[in-house]
Design a binder for these strands. Sequence first.
DNA 1: CTGTGTGAACATCTTCACAGCT
DNA 2: AGCTGTGAAGATGTTCACACAG
Lengths: 218, 218
Amino acid sequence: MPTVSSEELAAAAGVNSAKLRKDFSYLGSYGTRGVGYDVEYLVYQISRELGLTQDWPVVIVGIGNLGAALANYGGFASRGFRVAALIDADPAMAGKPVAGIPVQHTDDLERIIQDNGVSIGVIATPAGAAQPVCDRLVAAGVTSILNFAPTVLNVPEGVDVRKVDLSIELQILAFHEQRKAGEEAAADGALPPAGAAARKAAQADQGPDGAAPAVMPA
Amino acid sequence: MPTVSSEELAAAAGVNSAKLRKDFSYLGSYGTRGVGYDVEYLVYQISRELGLTQDWPVVIVGIGNLGAALANYGGFASRGFRVAALIDADPAMAGKPVAGIPVQHTDDLERIIQDNGVSIGVIATPAGAAQPVCDRLVAAGVTSILNFAPTVLNVPEGVDVRKVDLSIELQILAFHEQRKAGEEAAADGALPPAGAAARKAAQADQGPDGAAPAVMPA
DNA sequence: CTGTGTGAACATCTTCACAGCT
DNA sequence: AGCTGTGAAGATGTTCACACAG
């Protein structure tokens, strides 16, 4: 398939074709009127804009179940991420290979960051270890941190943190599940009507990156 | 702290106090003018609306690193989720306890779902196994699925699916990282100006549980 | 004729600002 | 006096609809 229309892409993505065209137009005019978008060219332009054409070395700190899962995760390589090092505080882990990469000890954290020119760090440690690890990563030159530990991290100006809470998505499902049950019961006249918030929020779909309004689940 | 004002909560959450009040108002009028919100009462009302006061049995299918990480994740219990069962296709896993729960074989999936009245399933299998597992979960009565496998799942009407892609958050960080680098270089006059999309998107902030500052200085 | 690119209309979300309750 | 709850204003996001390029 050499070219694709905004209509086809929109259908595949589940969005309106006008929105798709408008979004693409912010990147530039990469389509051809009467024809559509050249697939290969479009993929390249989007990849470039998103930073997928670059190589991003990342370190993962905390090689428990989650750290190991991340190290083994296939999706990283295909998106330009390279796991440059795995770091754990347990001396017994040192030298053991996980996903083909030997685990190194926390003592060498600063050297590892600098040797590999790492600017993105992933924290998969227990909650208590997260802030100290974060401080050391930042001091060593890391400017973006992905935090899986259930703690809010404090970082200096200029450092980006994103927190992933694995239970939030479950909570969103439970919220909808509750609404489903509520509607059935309401149809039987068994329950009083639920709050306006629920009715409003229940309409929301999963957003592009899963972002939700500040107080209510999407 | 028996009561709290919208101003204090907003500061803690990094949002505007008016937004917080408006959001709360959708749940009902749970505050007291001139005083603020009674903390305990507010927590209860929000918990109830979100479904946190209910017990949600969930099953996790696919007990690899990620499945084990999820089974061990502390955040679930405190939010009303109970891991009712762990299921894996590997007969060698059967009976082994993970996070104190014995792993059961996929053959018993339907029985497990029904015995425990499970309506929420978590898929942490390899990509290839996800769709078949999903089909069986749905057939057995599951109506909400949290999918960690890198596949788009097809489900019948009335079933909710949320997909978590662990690499997307990393991609967002890389995008901002690229922008940081681009701005420095642009200041040196080394690069042509980046696209309008990048400038626009770079303003986007992390949503609900964000550790990042919610109100960016323009 | 087809399908992009985009102003303009429409819809939704956020913030302001203040009436009114405690 | 202090702080909520909320209309109205302002900002942002989405969709329509069509001029125009290929």
